[in-house]
Nucleic acid binder design. Sequence first.
DNA 1: ACTCATAACTGAGTACGGTCAGACTTTATT
DNA 2: AATAAAGTCTGACCGTACTCAGTTATGAGT
Lengths: 200, 200
Amino acid sequence: MPLAAQSLGRRERNKQAKLERIIAAASELFAEQGVDEVTTQQIADKADIGAGTLFLYAKTKGELLLLVQNAHYATALANGQAAAEKTPGVLGATLAIIRPVVNCNRVHVDNGRTYLREMVFGDPREPHHAEALKIVAQTEQAVAGILSRDEAITDADAATLARVVSSIMFLTMASAVNPHTGTEEIIENIRGQIGAILPR
Amino acid sequence: MPLAAQSLGRRERNKQAKLERIIAAASELFAEQGVDEVTTQQIADKADIGAGTLFLYAKTKGELLLLVQNAHYATALANGQAAAEKTPGVLGATLAIIRPVVNCNRVHVDNGRTYLREMVFGDPREPHHAEALKIVAQTEQAVAGILSRDEAITDADAATLARVVSSIMFLTMASAVNPHTGTEEIIENIRGQIGAILPR
DNA sequence: ACTCATAACTGAGTACGGTCAGACTTTATT
DNA sequence: AATAAAGTCTGACCGTACTCAGTTATGAGT
């Protein structure tokens, strides 16, 4: 074993390498063709692994999508949080958080909708799913933080309202079937709803 | 042709009879075993039609579930509306509308969640799907009507808020994976959220 | 009655997500 | 080095939702 090698055994390194190949392959194919147009066989072939091996790394095709997309959403959220810092006003700042997430979701409409579907209806015990839920929780916490800027909103209400904002976001994105519906159009729709639930 | 026969031709009557057999068969099997445990073949057999014929009456298995459940939801809504008439207070009346719907959704948890999934992510152009969306629209209108009792809420806001209530209901039901979560528990959860969005 | 166009039906066939018994690889033990 | 134990991989296989080319039933036209 060369001195430069990781402290991990060969086995662990192999697994890591395979996982990365899977992510790369799935990521590319999903982006190019959309989840529904890609077969798990294609992904396995491109990642140079057996068809069955794929399912050792993600229990279902849906989990695979979560695995691939979670990273994108996490960075989108980070961008949103940064933007919200610089935005005054509760409504404006809330939308600033949300905007990059919606935008990320709209890069490939079908994939975005499938991602949402998987999050709500997939098996929450699966690891990649849990990861996705963590991002949602973070988003809600961030929104709750923003809402607390308003002195008329208690901390408990902020948490509840953040949950509601999350629902609004989710369903507004999921309902926007038409791929020509742009990010800003959706944001405006969301603005209308959030505007109606905030104290006047 | 006997005098007593309908004005419809034999063709139309046959179709009607088949549709009814399909609804009866699917309804029974779904209720007994749950959507996921029933195969379309079983349904076709029970309805005494060919496997392919089933898909002339419902484009997908999901559509079939919508076909079967829509009627239940429609009556649940009617019950809710009746109950809301007799219930004073905006929050109470809103929950009165919702209660039977939630309850209906919880009769068989898996079927209920699949129904929700199909409504948001299914093909809205399919007829049974359109029917389901109509029920949702009616629910929102009914809720908007209740909200308008509050003089602090404009008609436009009532419509928007009704939409939000709909989202809350949807996601709260869909997230309640545990079959032991009862109707009232979910209603309480929803009450908390609606309470937070109504003007104080 | 007969013909023909059209609507409705059928079930063998297809594609694909997911499984599993067995092969292979790595690590631990002596 | 040899062997054992445990972990990882594989692809043939399976179940099932859905399709489609071919068949049959219906009713309008003559």
